[in-house]
């Protein structure tokens, strides 16, 4: 039996994740939150059966709810196209024909600012023509090349495309590029079985389980790592062979990595593409005292990052001593912030 374990980074992996989290904390600087907006296109393809149609519609609904209500993305920034509008009329704006998909992308391109972010999530079945992927839509399918051509409308924005279905691996190379994040549920176009990935990806975005660094935000890297691990666990619990192997590419080399992290070949951009809002991330305040406290907290987090980066140069005892001191300082600062915010301590 193939032991499809939950994602086991082991101690070396944990070190990578910690280092990656150091990067995350640093990237959590206020710059992005003020001006940058996020635009989302969710495309639900052909279900094939009622069961798939229902579940795909459910994922899309859950995703939209999470993005708008939890992550604070304006509803007019989230477009959902599906095989049938009647399956979720409160959520689906139009049918997910190729024409409508391309048009929706054009509309987003027209309104998006140069530094905005775009998230495109494809929920449905894929097929393959040789090594090239096709996404099944009502009417003509959408090929990887066609999607890549449509993405040319976003020359400056950071674009993330998440292919949650079968054969998504056939899209990685064609979509790969600078400032692009491509997440695929499958390593190649030849992994043709229906996937478990969308369920866990949506869980990651909608819940807290993927927020591994507990900053109240879920990055696409965190969502990818979480979904990949949960997929593996699902197959193991079902005593089945693992037939889908998710990958992430964000360094533009056209090769997806299964073990992406903030310090690996792939994962840095995805680590910075974060969704959600928390007291840590929310930077906007009119209270100068509170703003000062936020700044002080960021400064402490920065010192923690610095300490973590120099871990190897210290004995374990000294390191833990120094870390604890900073964490205590951070904890006390949090209490001050909570008290100031009116949340108590």
């Amino acid at each position: 039996m193939i032991r499809a374990r939950t994602h086991r980074t082991g101690s070396a992996g944990a070190a990578c994740l910690m280092a990656g989290t150091a990067m995350l904390a640093f990237l959590g600087a206020p710059r992005f939150a003020a001006a940058q907006e996020t635009h989302v296109l969710v495309v639900v393809g052909l279900g094939g059966t009622d069961a798939y149609r229902q579940s795909f519609a459910g994922y899309a609904t859950e995703l939209r709810t999470a993005l708008t209500e939890r992550d604070g993305i304006p509803t007019d920034h989230v477009t959902v196209l599906a095989e049938r509008v009647d399956l979720a009329p409160e959520v689906v704006q139009d049918r997910s024909t190729k024409e409508n998909v391309v048009r929706a992308m054009g509309e987003i391109a027209a309104r998006a600012a140069p530094a905005d972010r775009v998230l495109i999530v494809l929920i449905g079945h894929g097929t393959a023509q040789g090594d090239e992927g096709q996404f099944n839509l009502p009417g003509p399918d959408l090929s990887a090349d066609e999607l890549a051509a449509a993405l040319a409308a976003f020359p400056t924005q950071m674009v993330a495309v998440v292919l949650t279905g079968s054969s998504g691996g056939g899209f990685v190379a064609p979509l790969s590029g600078p400032n692009r994040i491509v997440i695929s549920a499958t390593r190649t176009a030849r992994e043709r079985n229906a996937t478990e990935f969308p369920r866990y990806f949506v869980d990651a975005i909608a819940g807290d389980g993927a927020d591994m660094d507990k900053d109240g935000l879920t990055s696409l890297l965190e969502a990818f790592v979480y979904a990949r691990a949960e997929v593996a666990r699902h197959y193991e619990e079902e005593n089945e062979l693992l037939v889908e192997h998710a990958v992430l590419d964000d360094n533009g080399d056209g090769e997806g990595s299964p073990d992406a992290s903030a310090t690996a070949v792939d994962g840095r951009l995805a680590a910075g593409f974060r969704l959600g809002r928390t007291a840590v991330a929310a930077q906007a305040t009119d209270d100068p005292a509170l703003a000062k406290l936020y700044e002080e907290r960021r400064e402490i987090l920065g010192r923690i990052d610095g300490l973590r980066a120099s871990r190897d140069a210290m004995t374990e005892e000294r390191y833990d001593e120094a870390l604890e001191a900073l964490l205590v300082e951070l904890a006390l600062k949090n209490r001050e912030i909570k008290a100031r915010e009116g949340g108590g301590s």
Binding site: A25, L327, L330
Partner: peptide, 26 residues
Amino acid sequence: ARRTVLRALEIAPAYEDALELLLALR
């Protein structure tokens, strides 16, 4: 518990529950 919560906070320094636990342990 102290050593373990440090390891948790090393991964996620902003983890509020863990920070409070550290303070409680101290």
